[in-house]
């Protein structure tokens, strides 16, 4: 764990893996720290709006991430009904050296956990695929990816909450509502949420 500077009111903590970042975020949430924003990412957790840095640094010294096992939020597994007709399904299957049906079976057979959100409100980076199934982003992003598109990039899978440009490889689509700014919990998927994709014909 390495503490990096991020201005007078913030600290960035760098860790060894996405799992450690998720564990640190979960620990921070549980500890109810004084920070306006705690922002997990792939290898870091940003603590922003920190009134007392020495207090936070002392807490960081006390945190044990060695037992980092994908921490999950309460609330069970969110199931996303998904139609696997994405434009990149065949390419992903080729990259994985399997048939498209087998690729779908891998994706539906994995219980993912949201490591962090970013890119746009409610866009969740879901982890759970083994490292050897990482896929590169598209060389050139699509100018428009429809809302509900289910994609892969690097070690992550995710769903576009709304239509936007995007470079993720598309496996399919879901009509689940990923984002509702009027709801008490606006994001269906937030850090720690468990996710399973369930194949449907539609």
């Amino acid at each position: 764990m390495r503490v990096l500077p991020a201005g007078p009111g913030a600290l960035m903590v760098e860790v060894a893996s996405t799992a450690e970042a998720a564990a640190l975020y979960a620990a921070a949430r549980a500890a109810d720290l004084h920070a306006t924003d705690v922002v997990p990412a792939a290898r870091t957790v940003l603590f922003d709006g920190v009134p007392d840095r020495s207090l936070l640094e002392a807490w960081l010294r006390s945190v044990d991430l060695s037992a980092a096992d994908r921490p999950v939020a309460p609330g069970g597994v969110v199931e996303l009904p998904t139609t696997y007709d994405g434009a990149d399904l065949d390419d992903v299957a080729r990259l994985w050296d399997m048939t498209p049906a087998e690729a779908v079976a891998v994706h539906t057979g994995t219980v993912f956990v949201v490591a962090f959100c970013g890119f746009s409100p409610g866009f969740a980076y879901c982890t759970g695929l083994p490292e050897e199934l990482s896929v590169p982003r598209l060389d050139s992003p699509r100018p428009r990816v429809p809302a509900g598109s289910v994609g892969l990039a690097g070690e992550f899978t995710g769903v576009y909450p709304r239509s936007s440009p995007g470079g993720w490889r598309l496996l399919g689509r879901t009509d689940a509502a990923l984002w509702d700014a009027e709801a008490e919990q606006p994001a269906l998927l937030s850090p720690g949420t468990q996710v399973r994709f369930v194949e449907v014909d539609r």
Binding site: A6, G7, G9, A10, M12, D37, V39, P40, A41, A42, R43, T44, V45, L46, D48, F116, C117, G118, F119
Partner: peptide, 27 residues
């Protein structure tokens, strides 16, 4: 990708620094 604070001076691929203001992306 990692979290950003308001006022972060980021240097993207084109080398032109930018100072992030309030509508900055979160990461």
């Amino acid at each position: 990708s990692e979290g950003l604070v308001v006022g972060a001076v980021q240097v993207p691929a084109d080398g032109r620094p930018l100072v992030f203001l309030n509508d900055h992306p979160t990461t």
